[in-house]
Amino acid sequence: MTKALPWVQKQRFTTANFSLVNGAVLPQVALGWEAYGQLNADKSNAVLITHHFSGNSHAAGRYRQSDAEAGYWDSIIGPGKAIDTDRFYVLSMDSLCNLQPFSPDVVTTGPASINPATAKPYGLDFPVYAIGDLVNVQKALLESLGIGHLHAVAGPSSGAFQALEWAVRYPDWVSRMISVIGAGQLDAWTVCGLERWSDGVKSDPAWQDGHYYDDGQPLAGIARAMASIFYDATYPSSFNRLYAPPSEAAPRQDIRARHQCVDQLLATMTAKAEFVDANSILYLVRASQNFLAGFEGTLAENLEKLRAKTLFLPARHDRLLMPYLARQCYEQLAAADKLTHYQEVDGCWGHLDGIASIASESELIKAFLD
């Protein structure tokens, strides 16, 4: 029987003179983190959860009684659940350039942060970061807690990128790696698809080439970007239940009129834009576009370094990170005689099945962690 997690406390980690993999240095990085369960005496039961593009460290539980929803993977993290907090010490950390830097529940360093050299927001002067940088700051947090090894690292979407990067970059650290709706490297088709998200921001005149902080966020551009993100992450069977069918008359008469479903989608995303930073979208997109597990070389060469047992769980109906991207990693690892397993998550949500339908893989995940 599963029990609810106790109230979750957000904590803050700060490190100075943080070197990025591209050679740039950030004078200070501050990121939020949280944990569930207890670290055992020999610190051998740590499981790291790495979050998705639009997420943050809040993987499970609730911060307060008034919270409408629990963390995004609450269905599999907690006492007696697949990632059992009676057994594991489960940690998660906010990302650099987090999508929602203005949320009271997020601590992040990114383009909306104050550049100490100018006393103004970094804007587009913030350095381009890589998935490996997220891993390195997570490693710094773990080391500050005296943790030197991970029982497992797991995450969905760009969190899956981080999980695989961990296993490749620090093979002696990681015993098990779970990649949910992920990839080892993006191809041209996927990179071009993600570029549309950035174009949504840049198409808004209020973006002002990234210099909008004194005048307010370019909300129309943010709404367009987030509409593209949500559209790409869903599947017709679920999307069509949320929005009205195109049956109205106005678009048949006036090219300037929009279908109701389009207006509904944009209105929904405008309402969700309160804590979002437009420039952060660009940086999150670029980090995903640039992703190659291991950062340099070839995927095949880098996967050879991996020692962890691996589990790949793409979503069968994913239109964003299609299953072939995860299968490529699985097949290369299998060909190299690495311990690896592949199974597709079924559901009606497309890419979002890696969150909404992940509980269907609870038994497999629990067995894998055993």
Rank of each mutant, 00 (worst) to 15 (best):
L5W: 09
L5S: 08
W7P: 07
Q11A: 14
S19Y: 00
V21M: 09
N22A: 15
N22R: 09
G23V: 07
V25M: 09
Q28P: 01
A30M: 11
L31N: 10
W33H: 12
L39S: 11
D42R: 00
K43C: 13
H52S: 11
N56A: 11
Q65P: 00
Y72D: 06
Y72Q: 00
A82N: 10
I83R: 05
F88L: 10
D94C: 01
T108L: 10
T108C: 12
I114Q: 03
A117H: 01
Y122S: 06
Y129F: 15
G132N: 02
L134K: 01
A140I: 02
G148D: 10
A152Y: 04
V153I: 11
E165S: 12
W166H: 12
W166D: 08
R169C: 14
I178C: 11
S179V: 11
S179Q: 04
G184F: 03
E195K: 03
V201L: 14
D214H: 03
G216S: 03
Q217S: 09
L219W: 10
R224H: 09
M226L: 13
A227Q: 04
P246F: 15
R256N: 15
C261M: 14
Q264L: 05
A271H: 05
K272D: 06
A273I: 04
A273F: 06
A278Q: 03
S280G: 10
I281V: 15
Y283E: 02
V285F: 09
R286N: 12
S288H: 06
L292K: 11
L299Y: 02
E301V: 05
A308N: 02
K309R: 13
T310A: 15
P314R: 04
P314K: 02
A326E: 07
E331R: 10
L333W: 06
A336G: 14
D337M: 06
E344D: 09
D346S: 11
G354V: 03
E363N: 13
D370V: 10
